[in-house]
């Protein structure tokens, strides 16, 4: 059933990333709790000043790991982290609703979860009458590029008909989407908000891989929505994610194959192809099936 995969990670590029541990407001006591990151068990608690502290449970000295508090979450790192996390400037806009919609455990590899998040093709079939509807199934050609300064993967000019794009929707709309992958296991989408045609809602998936084929998925939203309760916003997002979950958990193989010939892409998968190549270029082997040297030589 489950692939027999090593649980700990040896990729420098992954070990040196900030990873989302959990929402800051869920660390509420000075009594240690535990969570798993990349196969390592971490402990966390509040220190005497009320600040979060994180360490490797197996470390008898409890040497604190680096932490960062950003976008409602505590982030930590098992290696040498960069000074800063990727930027989400919308987070600081005064009229934004920044909402943590929930953390859900999923039996899927982090890259598979990111890739599903990038896919518009499944909207009418999995999120029927909400994010899509038949016969509006076509994914119109869109653009993909890598930002030369930040090395983020972007998909732009995405357009999709959505019967109920957001909690604030009163009717169907053509939604404009932008997708951005600023981190191997984090993905952000920007979409048309029904309330302001010049600005976009921000919806992000921050994955914490616990094993190569398991994640804790944090759902983060930065919305223009003055009216709905947190409960309503969370319900909408959790419903969508709940619909994706069985699809994610039934993908085989569990790990994402990076060889371009391993699965048959269609035009709509342009950004997924770019994401796979980008992971390959970064040297990611955790949660993926890397391109093997022998199969690579066939194409060269």
């Amino acid at each position: 059933m489950t692939a027999n995969v090593a649980t700990t990670c040896t990729d420098p590029v992954i070990l040196d990333q900030w990873h989302p541990l959990l929402p800051l407001d869920e660390i509420t006591t000075d009594q240690p709790n535990t969570a798993v990151l990349l196969g390592e068990q971490l402990s966390y608690r509040l220190d005497a000043n009320g600040d979060p502290v994180v360490w490797l449970t197996a470390d008898a000295d409890a040497t604190p790991l680096p932490i960062l508090v950003e976008y409602l979450y505590v982030w930590t790192c098992l290696g040498s982290p960069p000074d800063r996390l990727f930027a989400i400037p919308e987070f600081s806009e005064p009229d934004r609703r920044n909402v943590h919609a929930g953390t859900i455990g999923v039996h899927v590899s982090a890259p598979r979860a990111v890739e599903n998040f990038l896919d518009m093709g499944h909207f009418p079939f999995v999120h029927t009458d909400v994010l899509g509807a038949e016969p509006h199934t076509e994914v119109v050609e869109y653009d993909v590029h890598i930002d030369p300064d930040t090395n983020d993967v972007w998909a732009t000019e995405c357009v999709f008909y959505q019967p109920r794009a957001a909690t604030t929707s009163t009717e169907g709309q053509m939604s404009d989407y932008l997708y951005r992958v600023p981190h191997p296991f984090c993905v952000i989408l920007y979409k048309t908000t029904p309330l302001d045609k010049d600005r976009m809602d921000v919806i992000a998936l921050f994955c914490r891989p616990t094993a190569q084929d398991r994640i804790e998925a944090h759902m983060f939203l930065s919305l223009l929505d003055p009216d709905n309760t947190d409960a309503a916003i969370r319900k909408f997002q959790q419903t969508i994610f709940g619909q994706d979950k069985p699809i994610l958990e039934n993908q085989h193989p569990k790990l994402l194959p990076l060889d371009s010939r391993a699965e048959t892409p269609i035009r709509a998968d342009k950004v997924a192809i770019a994401y796979r190549r980008w992971l390959s270029d970064l040297g990611v082997t955790y949660g993926v099936i890397p391109v093997s040297p022998t199969s690579a030589s066939v194409t060269s």
Binding site: P23, G102, T103, D230, A231, R234, K235
Partner: peptide, 10 residues
């Protein structure tokens, strides 16, 4: 009536 069962523990 949606209750914020998780994560809000309403």
């Amino acid at each position: 009536v949606p209750i914020d069962f998780f994560p809000g523990l309403e």
